[in-house]
Design a protein around this nucleic acid. Structure first.
Lengths: 328, 328
DNA sequence: AAAAATAGGGTAAACGATAATCCAATTGTA
DNA sequence: TACAATTGGATTATCGTTTACCCTATTTTT
């Protein structure tokens, strides 16, 4: 800017004003400045600007792992949502390590991010209380933390359970099983939705039809094999997530049963290769992108606001995607 | 820092030195400063520091789309590699739109990133020549751009083709087909590797055994069906990538043929759910993480260097992962 | 025609740090 | 004892931009 000003015999402030379209500047000087800026290939130094304006137009995104498609999709949606407002995203992941998460969030704060979106692994609210005390807006995503006075966005897991189970009922299934997942909150909510749907349709709620699929590898496969030993065998299975469903399908096929004729299968989550499977999988889409978008919108709202807006809890409504695995 | 200095009756510079472990400071004042800093909950303002040091300790990562597992893995590896050196990653994606890519890279430059890693969609070298002219180190990843004087890191696609084909040969296949992909450079290199391996083992190079799998959806499926109409039917298939292989497996199963007994199948790429498939897939792992890591290391090297280090082209050696789909 | 308003721009300070010098007091050396 | 070297720290300038305020013509209003 100094170079531009010198050559044109105007002050740096005048240049600054032109570049930001602020203040009263004649058309003539404006033109001259702009042209010279182009000639010199001038680009705003955002660091300097941020120092004085106290806004960096960056937000921090703190995730456990962004190779996981779920979080990758969130990252994309967030970046996409804030981009039109000139914001960029600084990513950071912490591998489920709360200590590392704390370090990283400190770093992000030191970099003066204007806001933070986090899918946190903290076991208590200390970290976020500190951040909020520094007046930095925070939006929690996917994982709520008790006691944190911040907005939250996540999937409506109970609705997912209901949607999947209701669909199986609508397809004529009467012996509906559930392969449940390990994550306390999420799995419990999906299970609750499953139960709720069964009750509402006066179907029996058999404990032996709910099998845990807790293991990392081929989790759905072994769980489904356990389920196949029940008498009578279920005619519909709601699987905690898509990988579990894929394992289940394998187990069912191996047992010589047909999908969906003998057993209908519903998955849930955000895996998008369902079409490539041997049996295209009916699944409940948890609309991950929506979550990311909403979180980003909430955050931007808070960043722009003078007074702290009310805290919101948003649950994203899932969507059923019907494929061959349940179409009788 | 001013607050710390005031309370202790020392200069701001002294505080600065303590906080950075620089200069000569007595143990006593050091202690006092550090304690007061903790009391006041002081955190470095990196924006201010960056302004004067001219280093932001951020790098820009410019990718087409980071929900794609390939790029997500790169992002993770990059972030992981630069973290120990205090660096953070600003992400940006451009949906294969060269114009958007240019805008985003400009933004990243304006944010004064210390370096840039890009999987670019530019059709010429202008953009990167501009960036390099501004003395910002650049490393290209996955996609080389002709005429750009920057280091490059990518998979060794010819080696991938060789590795896959040699493995099929070693398994006793003699009629080996290839489902080739659409991307010019990459697909061509893999095809070249395939041909090279065949020639080396004096196997015939039949054009009708090379089928394009160009379509987005169920690409491998239709291509494989075409292949199954050949006479004689191949006894081994090297698929351009894993999704193609999954489609191929489906087509083969439908045709009543057994894998690997009748036809052995090899995939390639970076999909990690191969184990969950009906037939666990033998594949060539292109070691995406390695690429990201190497790219990050090259970049950090350049950022640290006084003189511009020599430009390097690094090809990552692939790795064969044998599963059921080829184990006869 | 005088007063008020506006247009067009300049000045000085600040944002929160670091770099380069410099200086006084103490310590070591010949 | 005299001089040099070291210790511990202060001063001043700077990074590139914005903010708040001031100034002088010219134009508008009354």
């Amino acid at each position: 800017m100094l170079d531009i000003a010198k050559g044109l015999n105007v002050s740096v402030v005048t240049v600054s004003k032109v570049l930001r379209n602020k203040g009263k500047i004649s058309v003539a000087t404006r033109k001259r400045v702009l042209q010279r800026a182009k000639e010199l290939n001038y680009h705003t130094n955002w660091i300097a600007r941020s120092l004085v304006t106290r806004r960096t137009f960056t937000i921090g995104l703190l995730l456990p792992d962004f190779t996981h498609p779920f979080f990758a999709e969130i990252a994309k949606a967030v970046a996409e949502t804030v981009r039109p407002q000139g914001y960029h995203v600084i990513i950071s992941y912490f591998e489920e390590d709360p200590e590392l998460e704390k370090n990283e969030s400190d770093s992000l704060m030191a970099r003066q991010v204007d806001g933070l979106i986090a899918a946190s692994a903290q076991s208590n609210s200390n970290l976020f209380e500190n951040i909020l005390a520094r007046k930095v807006p925070v939006v929690l995503i996917d994982r709520p933390i008790a006691g944190v006075q911040a907005s939250f966005v996540g999937a409506d897991n109970e609705a997912i359970g209901k949607l999947a189970t209701n669909h199986l009922i609508a397809q004529g299934c009467t012996r509906i099983a559930h392969l449940r997942g390990p994550k306390i909150g999420i799995a419990a909510a999906r299970l609750a939705g499953y139960r709720h749907a069964l009750q509402k349709h006066d179907l029996p709620l058999l404990p032996r039809y709910v099998v845990g699929a807790r293991y990392v590898d081929s989790t759905g496969y072994t769980a489904m094999r356990k389920l196949l030993q029940q008498e009578p065998v279920p005619d519909g299975v709601f699987c905690y997530n898509d990988p579990v469903a894929i394992g289940a399908i394998k187990a069912i096929s191996e047992a010589g049963l047909r999908i969906p004729h003998d057993i209908a299968v519903v998955g849930a989550g955000n895996v998008h290769y369902s079409d490539m499977l041997a049996v295209p999988l009916t699944r409940v889409d948890q609309c991950t992108g929506q979550s990311g978008k909403q979180a980003a919108e909430l955050l931007m709202e808070q960043i722009g606001a003078k007074r702290k807006p009310r805290i919101k809890k948003i649950l994203i409504t899932p969507k059923l995607v019907v494929r061959q695995s349940t179409q009788r």
